[in-house]
Design a protein around this nucleic acid. Structure first.
Lengths: 146, 146
DNA sequence: TTGACTTATGCGTATATGCACTCATTATGC
DNA sequence: GCATAATGAGTGCATATACGCATAAGTCAA
């Protein structure tokens, strides 16, 4: 079965495994806040970049726009974000962080800090720093179409 | 909003982003084979470790057992794996790679090799090697419960 | 102005992910 | 042997992910 090397060296599979492990670690730490890391990242990114359309925010977050669109649902339902119709362009929808959303995210950041610190402890601070750098390269790299 | 440092340095978020990017890269390369990287990893792991129960395979793959259970459905439907009742312990279900599954996986490995090579090219071979090593540490690390 | 093209978003479908709870079966203690 | 505990797997629920298609709205040229 193995060919080139075997799939245990698959960059993608180990990336997915690590993402699962990290997600569970962070989600557990965030549980009390009622937010998942995936949701907290939406709120904090929105806070950082300011009101944006779905397409714009999806681009920033390196996320498919249809995925982001659906991920917004729980956040809107809980009143953490508001979705306003675009003024100039009526096709667009402006995503705005509400006061409630800002407050919840701020509280969650305490737990996030704990999770980040314990992550850095678990894998080693130097390793965590090197890892983040490499991961940003993976995100930014160009993958030619065949 | 930002607290400790800001969430743009969140180890988990960048991990998830990179996993998404890599998954799309590999899934595109594998499209012709009809398999996704998530599915190919099940088949190759099963091929490597031999017949296993759901719990056992889930453990090896660092995947929740209920997730694996559901992920098996398409593979079973397509006849790539067979699920046999356990002989000794009737609670268990042995997962077996079929000839068809083995054949499909073997073909897909060509495309996987292309994807892996182009990934290594995109991020740099040295970086890819260092990254895999770090990711394995993330997977294996111990994350104490608070 | 109107027709053609582009763009922003939604929806249908399918898979991926994991928690809480349940059921069936096995193991254990007495 | 039997009551109880432990274990393997399934289900319900909710969220995450992205592709293809559809729709609405803006842009631009003739």
């Amino acid at each position: 079965m193995p060919k080139r090397t075997d799939i245990h060296r698959c960059a993608c599979t180990v990336l997915r495994q690590a993402a699962r492990v990290a997600t569970q670690h962070f989600d557990k730490a965030l549980a009390a806040s009622g937010l998942r890391i995936s949701q907290l990242s939406v709120l904090t990114t929105l806070s950082y970049v300011g009101p944006k359309t779905i397409n714009e925010l999806a681009e920033v977050m390196v996320l498919d726009r249809t995925t982001l669109g659906r991920n917004l649902r729980p956040l809107q339902r809980e009143g953490f974000i508001a979705i306003e119709a675009g003024k100039d362009d009526r096709r667009t929808k402006k995503l705005v962080l509400t006061k409630k959303g800002s407050s919840v995210a701020l509280k969650a950041m305490d737990s996030w800090g704990d999770a980040q610190t314990s992550f850095e402890k678990a894998v080693g601070l130097e390793n965590a720093i090197a890892l983040s750098k490499l991961l940003r390269q993976v995100v930014k790299a160009d993958y030619p179409e065949k």
